[in-house]
């Protein structure tokens, strides 16, 4: 598995897209800090970008890589190697290389601008952790879609739809249900609803460390009590881990039966 991981990883590292992705974050980080010169505020802006863009890039990369390397994968499958190892190697290769681009691309400018001296270091690391999680989650989800869909175009379509659903449509439905069910106590409902969407969950996690915590107090103690404590933080992190594990598990399940 390690060999395949290494192969996928180097393959992606050599590809232009990883560099583009890395450079994008690098420039973004520098520009943000140059314009703001305040690490605190830059973290807020970054959050907006990370929770939308990281899932999108993860999704597209995952699907793209699967279909692109399909022939090579089939070649590998002809060898006496465990299927699981091949795909897990590929999956980890993509996720790790994407995460590395994210960490380095954003880390370098922030470190250069004196992150270690700033109080924002915790918020920033949380941002990076959440970003990494989103990478792993969405690559896994897109691999699931790609494995289940033979047709490349369809696969891409579903993957994008999945992203669109989680990033935009889900929130829309969420909001509408909140407005429609206005008469009912909705605190627990919204708490649970955020758990079912990794993007929402990441957003709330970061927001609570930033500016929303004051506002959430208004909404009802349930939210602040839950997310504000270490226990809530632990649970949310646990849910994010689950969001990685479940798709990976399903991927393996699918692999066992799939006829290549």
């Amino acid at each position: 598995m390690l060999k395949i991981l290494k192969y996928s990883f180097y393959d992606l590292m050599r590809s232009r897209w990883s560099y583009v992705y890395f450079l994008f974050y690098l420039i973004l980080g520098f520009v943000l800090l140059f314009l703001n010169n305040d690490v605190d505020k830059a973290v807020i802006t970054l959050m907006n970008i990370i929770i939308v863009l990281t899932p999108l890039i993860g999704t597209i990369f995952g699907v793209m890589y699967y279909y692109d390397s399909k022939e090579f994968t089939e070649l590998l499958l002809a060898q006496p190697i465990n299927r699981k190892k091949i795909f897990m190697g590929q999956y980890l290769g993509i996720s790790i290389s994407l995460t590395l681009s994210l960490l380095l691309g954003l880390g370098i400018p922030f470190v250069l601008y004196g992150l270690f001296k700033s109080a924002a270091i915790f918020n920033f690391s949380l941002l990076l952790v959440v970003g990494s999680f989103l990478n792993f989650i969405f690559v896994a989800l897109s691999y699931n879609i790609a494995l289940s869909t033979e047709n490349k175009i369809k696969g891409f379509g579903y993957a994008i739809l999945m992203w669109l659903f989680l990033a935009v449509i889900y929130d829309g439905i969420f909001l509408i249900s909140l407005v429609l069910l206005n008469e009912y106590p909705l605190d627990k409902f919204s708490l649970v609803a955020t758990m079912f969407n990794p993007i929402d969950l990441s957003r709330i996690l970061i927001l609570l460390k930033l500016d929303i915590s004051a506002l959430l107090g208004y909404t009802g103690a349930v939210f602040r009590k839950f997310f504000g404590t270490n226990f809530g933080m632990l649970i949310s992190m646990g849910v994010l881990v689950l969001w990685v594990i479940l798709p990976v598990f399903r991927m393996n399940l699918k692999l066992r039966k799939k006829d290549f």
Binding site: N48, I51, A167, I169, F189, D200, I212
Partner: peptide, 21 residues
């Protein structure tokens, strides 16, 4: 305006959907 009517909707602060709306 929405948050005024439904305070719980605040959970969606800074989400992409809200920005679009």
């Amino acid at each position: 305006y929405i948050v005024n009517k439904t305070p719980q909707a605040l959970v969606l602060l800074r989400s992409l959907f809200v920005d679009i709306v």
